[in-house]
Design a protein around this nucleic acid. Structure first.
Lengths: 208, 208
DNA sequence: TAAAAAGTAAACTGATGGGTGTAGTTTAGC
DNA sequence: GCTAAACTACACCCATCAGTTTACTTTTTA
């Protein structure tokens, strides 16, 4: 028999993946401090020693997870200003991307796990959660370009971007993080994107 | 000598206060799990046994702190809509109150401590951080009243309130929580309140 | 097919930390 | 001043848990 059901990869790789998956699950469920390596090994259906063969320490395992999740959410495309398209249009599209990111399981996982661990150490938090800034940078650039093209009137581009994100976050992101609404309805997302764009343009837009 | 410098109270009460203060300090600095009762006793300059004489357990101590901090931030006044005053005026005032709350040390302390502990248990997090909702309720009511009075055009009052708070939070509150800017400048606060009110009214206001 | 690489089970170490028990000292209040 | 309540120092119990060791089996690979 060539393989039982190991369409996947070498055993070693499968074990590694199982450990990461188990760790994500446990860390998310109970937090870093309240998750033991024994438990992770158990959940991964792997011997404890194997966990330590793959990851030097609990911290190393944690960082590997954060890195993996960061990589997952990394692949957001650039979003340059397009002079040919309507401002509202582009902003809506950008808003949708952000909302989708916010509500994606992987990003939620990242935030929950990381937030609880690094709330106390701003340094580390910045390096990891700094991810949250990463898409904001794109938005800032877009706002800058749009302003330069005379299609927006924003003085403080950073602030404008922060505010736009804030509009989306307060209604979509944070409620989800705190488990109020498991996943916001399409209806709500629609409303939020819509009114956010309207509000933003009401303040920073040029009557087009 | 009537008293050395014990203008305060009975020794017992001073001890209790010292324990609470030490616990707040330690929990804020290192989080719940990474703070030992030994350390708290040490910081409070109190014997460990005394800590346990005042508080049944580490959890009890934690809850006492949360309660105390909640009480501190509890005393926010009602904010009814006043038909005699300009809408922008009232909204600005409300925004200022919220910003002041956000940047107050006691509130920051509450959030840091509570967030890190209860991020994993939405139930508890809601009851405690739900405080954050408490002022939002006032804002929701204000928006409702203003809308009823024909001075605003908001369909979803909850959403509108969330968005307004989001505008303030993303620029003031969260950066402070994550220790980026220890305390935002008066200038920034001004800008944020100003543009937030403008944005909000641009969308929900009636051209007055 | 044999050696090298990876996995397993389970007992173990060492440290931490919540919480208790005790015996003796200090403070409060009558 | 004397008693009860509160505080202190410190040893102690016990559970948890990160990480290790050992002796052995399975998988990979060349």
């Amino acid at each position: 028999m060539s393989a039982e059901h190991s369409f996947d990869a070498r055993l070693t790789d499968r074990k590694r993946a199982a450990i990461l998956a188990a760790a994500v699950k446990e860390f998310q469920a109970k937090g870093f401090d309240n998750t033991s390596m024994n438990r992770i090994a158990e959940t991964a259906e792997v011997s404890k020693r194997t966990v330590y063969n793959h990851f030097e320490s609990k911290d190393a395992l944690f960082l590997a997870i954060v890195q993996e999740l960061l990589d997952t959410t990394e692949a957001l495309p650039e979003f340059p200003f397009d002079p040919e398209r309507e401002v509202a249009d582009q902003l809506s599209e950008n808003a949708w991307r952000i909302v989708e990111l916010f509500t994606s399981d992987s990003f939620q996982g990242l935030v929950r796990v990381t937030l609880s661990r690094f709330l106390m150490s701003p340094q580390l938090a910045q390096e990891t959660i700094g991810d949250q800034k990463r898409f904001r940078v794109r938005l800032v650039r877009w706002i800058e370009q749009a302003t330069a093209a005379g299609r927006l009137k924003a003085n403080d581009h950073e602030l404008a971007a922060a505010q736009f994100c804030g509009l989306l976050e307060s209604a979509i992101f944070w409620p989800a993080v705190f488990g109020l609404e498991p996943s916001p309805s399409q209806q709500l997302k629609d409303d939020v994107v819509c009114t956010s764009v309207e509000m933003f343009l009401a303040r920073y837009g040029i009557g087009e």
